[in-house]
Design a protein around this nucleic acid. Structure first.
Lengths: 222, 222
DNA sequence: CAATTGAGAGTACGAATGTTCACTGACTTG
DNA sequence: CAAGTCAGTGAACATTCGTACTCTCAATTG
């Protein structure tokens, strides 16, 4: 029997993680489709051939990076969705959380934004799949909100996708703007969210209130 | 004086255009940062060194492609903005125009979507500048709309940017979905536009029409 | 018409790429 | 403890790359 569990496996995971980390760093200034296998191994300090022990392709490495990056994003979305209170407050909190996570994991956001429409098919698909599941998660949470009474599943998913796309766009804009422009980007993001929220509140205005119990006259406080 | 005008210049422009076209085609399956100089010249059937007669870099070629691609986009935006009639009708027409242009110039849209957040700085900046000017153009047109009475310039630009971003996102989604999914993507795009339009109509609901329009002052983040 | 220009061809170079193969040696297992 | 597994090594491979040269010769110019 083995008492010591995986000294070997541990070391392997360590180098694998090192490869992922080095790649993420190198991808700050280029896209995945131009990332060289040797480039990554050189940064880690490992022989080029060792790469194959972990990934078949740089594309496969990219897919692994998607998992990693959107894993951390998943946590953030959970935080946003868990927020309570006035919609304006939740809106501010959402943007603040995006700011915070972009500062903490800039490379992850940059990678997602860059490769979402990038040149490597499998990576694009992986990102699309993950973002879709995020949108579904958001939609499911929205469905529980009283403001979403009478909404069809399709519309909820549409709105969830809108929020997710907006999040990625905002994060990318912040990275591009740098610390100096963060404030401005955040302000615009807030306004956009506000606009979408307004549209959301009036989505069912034209529909039959007997059919779908919407909000014909839940007056907004002023 | 020269009677014949630029047989030589004409030929040069022709090869330049051939280089741009070949590059655009090659960029269908990769990003600009991995596009090789030789790759482009080989596709055109010209010596690698001839490339330098037209562009200093592949990055410079990318910037030239931005001009070309967003030139055609500019025409489309003009068409969209020139549309008249009910907002629902204009909305449908906008999406139809996007569909039409994506079908006609898929490579241009793909290039813009891909390199907007891509690995080549100068190209990113060129795209950002052009898209900003589009947003300003949209904002200027929105300003003339009766529905936009009382809107601040900042809010108008925010909305214009939202429309532009949405357009790029929609075009990219259509390319990804292919002809089969075009319909579905168009439907979602319409709903999103409808939501934004609703938000737009209620943007000033809470503000005092006699007082200064706009958004109440916001809290600053840390 | 003679002189000049300049787009493109051709060759050559060093550097870097992905991938193969046989190998070592520390860890794991029976 | 002996046998086997396997992460990582190092050399070698055929390509591809960007770029620096010289050269050609048709279009332009004065």
């Amino acid at each position: 029997m083995s008492h010591t569990v995986g000294i070997r496996r541990t070391q392997k995971l360590k180098t694998r993680q090192a490869l992922l980390g080095a790649a993420l760093q190198l991808l700050e200034h280029q896209s995945l489709s131009s990332l060289g296998l040797r480039e990554v191994t050189r940064a880690v300090g490992v022989a080029p051939t060792a790469f194959y022990r972990h990934f078949e392709d740089t594309a496969a490495l990219g897919v692994a990076l998607v998992e990693e990056a959107l894993g951390s994003l998943h946590g953030m979305i959970g935080e946003i969705l868990a927020a309570t209170g006035d919609s304006e407050v939740r809106l501010d909190r959402s943007v603040d959380l995006i700011i915070h996570h972009v500062r903490e994991q800039p490379a992850h956001f940059r990678f997602i934004a860059r490769e979402q429409h990038g040149g490597v098919g499998p990576v694009r698909e992986a990102i699309a799949a993950q973002l879709l599941s995020f949108a579904e998660e958001v939609a499911a949470t929205l469905a529980e909100d009283p403001d979403s009474r009478g909404w069809s599943d399709e519309d909820l998913l549409m709105l969830g996708g809108l929020y997710v796309d907006h999040m990625v766009l905002t994060a990318s804009a912040m990275l591009e703007a740098g610390p100096a422009g963060e404030h401005r980007v955040a302000e615009v993001a807030r306004r956009r969210l506000r606009l979408v929220t307004l549209g959301r509140l009036h989505w069912l205005d034209g529909t039959n209130p007997a059919d779908a119990p919407g909000v014909p006259c839940t007056s907004d406080d002023d």
